[in-house]
Design a protein around this nucleic acid. Structure first.
Lengths: 184, 184, 184, 184
DNA sequence: GATGAATGAGCCTTCATTCAT
DNA sequence: GATGAATGAAGGCTCATTCAT
């Protein structure tokens, strides 16, 4: 039953991440439980409070960021500019918006945010350092700023807005990417 | 007495707009009433539901957008590029983040959003049309997109995030402005 | 509506006191609300937390203790021994058992208990001082000890116990009264 | 293996009795299981419901009462008054407070209480009969009344109360003992 | 036989909204 | 017309009890 429980736990995190990204916080935990196919008490056994669940979601996202950064690291040799662009687009696909709400749930200060994300920040800062040196990415771009920027741009919006102005997210990503490159 | 009532109504809208912009939705209406110096029942007399208040906030914002657009229209002759930049910065100062939540409260579809904002959209599209022609602003920039982009970038964030990455908003505005200009 | 609201508030306190005394804590606040003839939210408007309600109940009891002590003070001249006995019996009728739970709800330390009860303690200590001098009450009897003793003896018991041994409370009161008198 | 299982069962009862006596009911069964070093399911295998566990605790207490009564029976010859006093003090040490809650959990009526305790009651009544005859204990003292009195006086109290008035329990025991003796 | 996981029911608390003065 | 009070519905969380390994 260990394996089963673990899988269920992961299902909950994944579900929560998706739903947070879609609907922001203010989302009922019972909704997450239902979408995960478990009862509310099971969710609570795994995450004793809303904040702990948000924390787990944040860690899940950070893990994925790290993997994407590693991939970018590997791809850098072939085409550094493409690797950077691909990384940003990967971040865009990652429900980083859920991160915003996850952090918001915690009353934590900036320090906690940094702690949670420190692995991602470190990895990304390492990569950025190389890209700065190589002249691929502007010096003004840093790791935390990049993550927060993508999270800001991909935060869940009311459906009405998304449908009325569907290309805004894409445009802001393009704008950020352009801004991230050194002027020639 | 009419004037008094009107002033009160405006106070409520202004207060709501500020508080929405600071704390997002999920904010108790009684908090808005208290900050406005009225009882909750007075708020409800003026705005029979949360949605109606949000609507009024949206209209208030739209009014201010229109004024800013008019100002930009006037300033265009002297220095069109500066006028555009000033307009975007004016939008940034406008608590457009409150708009996001105001629209979100309403279950309304994209059509309602357009309706509410139609005046602002018309005015801004008129201006943009000129700026497109003058080569000051890229063709890909449209009125609704601009408003939503600024709203996206200025939406209220958890304090932790704001403190950890304080320049992200400014950077995204810069990025958007750069992106809005035609390549030379 | 002020008077109405005040009356309702008092009804809630009275009801809570009676129900606490009958069923101990672990009693649902909704039960108190229902027995008070109000909705749960009304109870919460008056007492923002369970602890605050318990506090109000404690104060209500303390008030009544003070009145009883005053009465005993007045009756002392005529027959001091009878006044003491009557006071203890008055305390027994007072749902002091509710006090136990009220204090238990608060995580407060002994200091808070003393603070809440300080008025009652002061009044009773004044009276006891006289009674000590007059040789009516043994020196070992003090105010807080008396209140806690009566509360202990009158604490709500499971019905089964009360029915099986109905005279125990009376017996313990008699025992306490006898113990409170100086040996001849 | 039988012995092992039995020991485990006894551990659970002992633990439950201690915890009930310390914290009253309202105590989670999982807490008892944890303190007993077993899983919650094991507790449930031994005691299919909270009530059954409470019942077992009551029986455990009754057993100990019987042993104490037997001891008092033996000691009676040497010094009957001392034997009585020692018995009451032994009862005081016995976590009888747990009994109150154990009985309270069951919805049972007075009859059930008597049934559970019948062995203790019989034994104690036998002893009391002797002590009445010998003029050591007042006729008004009976077995059930004695047990309930001690349970009442030793019931768990909020820490705040215990700390504020630490000698009340002792005083009430003294008072009860004095009351239990015939007037000279 | 023992265990940890799962579950629903229930309680505490908050909030949008309505009512009575 | 303005106000504070009242209310039920809903969400967070806990616990007795059952299930699957």
């Amino acid at each position: 039953m260990r394996a089963d429980a673990l899988r269920r736990r992961e299902t909950i995190v994944t579900t929560a991440r998706k739903l947070f990204a879609e609907h922001g916080d203010g989302l009922a935990l019972e909704t997450i439980a239902a979408h995960s196919g478990v009862g509310i008490a099971t969710l609570y056994r795994n995450f004793p409070s809303r904040e702990e669940l948000a924390h787990a979601v944040a860690i899940d996202i950070v893990d994925e960021i790290c993997r994407a950064v590693d991939a970018a690291h590997d791809a850098r040799a072939a085409d550094a500019a493409a690797a950077w662009s691909a990384l940003v687009h990967a971040l865009v696909e990652m429900d980083l918006g859920a991160l915003t709400d996850a952090v918001g749930s915690s009353q934590g200060d900036a320090a906690e945010l940094r702690t949670i994300q420190s692995r991602a920040i470190s990895a990304l800062d390492g990569l950025l350092s190389d890209l700065h040196t190589a002249g691929i990415v502007h010096e003004r771009v840093d790791a935390l700023g990049t993550i927060v920027a993508v999270a800001t741009v991909t935060r869940p919006q009311p459906d009405a807005i998304r449908r009325a102005a569907p290309s805004v997210q894409q445009n802001l990503v393009d704008a950020f990417l352009a801004w991230s490159r050194p002027a020639r």
